[in-house]
């Protein structure tokens, strides 16, 4: 279906038959603020994450803290930080291949296809629509009915992978309590890693696909009491999914920054136990 040529002035709210109001929108509030803030927030994260992913330095601190941006560390390059590769090394060490090349693309896709982030970038980057009752600039619109956006429907598969990666992150956070020479220790970094992974779980489990898999696809809840209970929990988390989406962007940066600062010797990790 190709869009018929039409007078740009007479589409959308200016279509024939609709009230001829003149102004495209009469909203008087600062409707452009949320999409602008979203754009800035996402850009900050993307720039930070890209720089860090390719830096291949300062990702492992105190011989036990592995930043989530390098987990799992599976490149031969991880050998530069002994103990950082928990699952073996098999990817070639190349400046254009992040050490965590096995997880990062999927995490990116997980968030890219996330129902919340979709909303966020459709509104802020695609301006479709920038805000409610504010006309979008596009002449035609097909939503998620065609390639490539129809691929958004694969979100659930990235959710499954994200669960696996979250398990790996959890493993990282747990083994970080063991120092190769000092044995069991607890430092501020442990708390940072733990908080980060907890919030990552909150984000991952509050996923809409998770809600669907847990019980959303059922019609008769009363015949599946356990799944109903799970669905209820996930639903409660799900109402805060957008919040977790933003919080985890923040905590990922902070966690990584903490590890990087300790690794580079800029700050020292405070030991609480051991």
């Amino acid at each position: 279906m190709t869009a018929p040529a039409r007078d740009v002035g007479s589409r959308g709210v200016d279509s024939p038959g609709r009230a001829a109001v003149g102004a495209r929108t009469l909203r008087t509030d600062r409707w452009w603020l949320p999409p602008a803030a979203t754009t800035i927030g996402i850009l900050i994260f993307l720039v930070y994450a890209t720089v860090r992913a390719f830096q291949q330095q300062y990702f492992f601190a105190d011989e036990r803290y592995l930043t989530p941006f390098y987990s799992p560390c599976v490149s031969y390059g991880c050998a530069s930080e002994p103990g950082s590769a928990h699952f073996g090394m098999f990817l070639p060490d190349h400046p254009l291949i992040p050490y965590a090349a096995l997880s990062l693309p999927f995490l990116l896709l997980f968030r890219l296809t996330c129902y919340y982030y979709r909303k966020a970038y459709y509104r802020s980057f695609a301006l479709a629509p920038a805000a409610c009752a504010v006309p979008e600039p596009h002449a035609t619109y097909h939503g998620e009915t065609r390639f490539p956006l129809i691929l958004q429907n694969s979100h659930r598969y990235f959710f499954y992978l994200a669960v696996v990666i979250s398990v790996i992150n959890t493993y990282d956070a747990i083994v970080a309590f063991r120092h190769p020479t000092d044995g069991f220790v607890v430092g501020v970094g442990n708390l940072v890693l733990l908080a980060n992974v907890t919030l990552l779980w909150c984000y991952t489990l509050s996923c809409h696909s998770c809600r669907h898999v847990m019980g959303g696809r059922l019609t008769h809840f009363s015949k599946h009491p356990v799944r109903y209970r799970l669905w209820t929990w996930v639903s409660a988390l799900n109402t805060r999914h957008a919040t977790f989406a933003w919080i985890t962007l923040g905590t990922l940066i902070l966690t990584d920054l903490y590890v990087a600062l300790v690794a580079s010797g800029t700050i020292t990790d405070l030991r609480l136990i051991g």
Binding site: R118, K119, Y122, C132, A133, G143, E144, T145
Partner: peptide, 13 residues
């Protein structure tokens, strides 16, 4: 037309 919805939530708002 479910696929046309891009879940931008104005309806909910």
């Amino acid at each position: 037309g479910l696929g046309r919805c891009n879940i931008t939530k104005c309806c909910t708002d």
